[in-house]
C-alpha cells in the first residue's frame, strides 16, 4: 500500500503525527508519498491541473507491475474499502488458479473455469445473489 498526494513529505509527517495517529493506532503503516507538482498523478491520469491536486484515484498493481484495476472519483465522496478488498482477492485468486470470477463474486462463491465446456452453461454455475432496492 502506497498513498500519494501533492503534499510534501514534511506535511505527511505532521498529518501522521497530529491527526492520523489519533485515528489509527500507531499511525498509518504504509509509505506516504509526496507527489510535488503532480507529476506522478499526471502519469496516472488523476492530476487536476486547475486545482493543483491529485484527485481520488486508486490503482491495483500486480506482482508483474501491471495495473489490474483502477477507480477514479471526484473529491467529495470517499472510497468503499470492501469493494477494493473484493477486487484484490478476486485478482489474486485468478492469478493463482486461472479461474475467472463472475459479476458480484465474493470469496467462497463458485468460480468459473473458462473453456469450451462452459460456453452457454454459465447459467448452471452462476447463481447471483439478489440485492434488495
Amino acid at each position: 500500500m502506497l498513498s500519494a498526494s501533492t503534499d510534501s513529505h514534511f506535511t505527511h509527517k505532521i498529518w501522521q503525527e497530529e491527526e492520523l495517529s489519533k485515528m489509527v493506532e500507531g499511525g498509518v503503516p504504509f509509505p506516504m508519498l509526496s507527489d510535488g507538482g503532480g507529476r506522478i498523478g499526471a502519469a496516472y491520469g488523476v492530476y487536476d491541473e486547475a486545482a493543483g491536486v491529485d484527485i481520488r484515484g486508486r490503482f491495483l498493481i500486480d506482482p508483474d507491475g501491471v495495473i489490474q484495476a483502477m477507480e477514479v472519483m471526484t473529491p467529495p465522496v470517499g472510497r468503499n474499502i470492501s469493494e477494493l478488498i473484493r477486487q484484490v482477492k478476486a485478482f489474486q485468486h485468478n492469478r493463482a488458479t486461472g479461474e475467472v470470477l463472475p459479476a458480484g463474486w465474493t470469496p467462497g462463491q463458485p468460480t468459473l473455469k473458462p473453456g469450451p465446456d462452459l460456453v452457454g452453461k454459465v447459467w448452471q454455475v452462476w447463481k447471483p445473489v439478489k440485492i434488495d432496492g
Binding site: M1, L2, S3, A4, S5, T6, D7, T11, H12, I14, W15, E19, D35, G41, Y44, V46, A51, V53, D54, I55, R56, G57, R58, F59, L60, I61, D62, P63, D64, G65, P75, P76, V77, G78, L84, V88, Q92
Partner: peptide
C-alpha cells in the same frame, strides 16, 4: 515493489475531511 501486489492511492490532500 516488483513481485508484490501494490495498491497505489492518490488523494486530494493531507488534512482534508473525507
Amino acid at each position: 515493489y516488483a513481485g508484490k501486489w501494490v495498491l497505489l492511492c492518490f488523494y486530494p490532500g493531507d488534512f482534508t475531511y473525507v
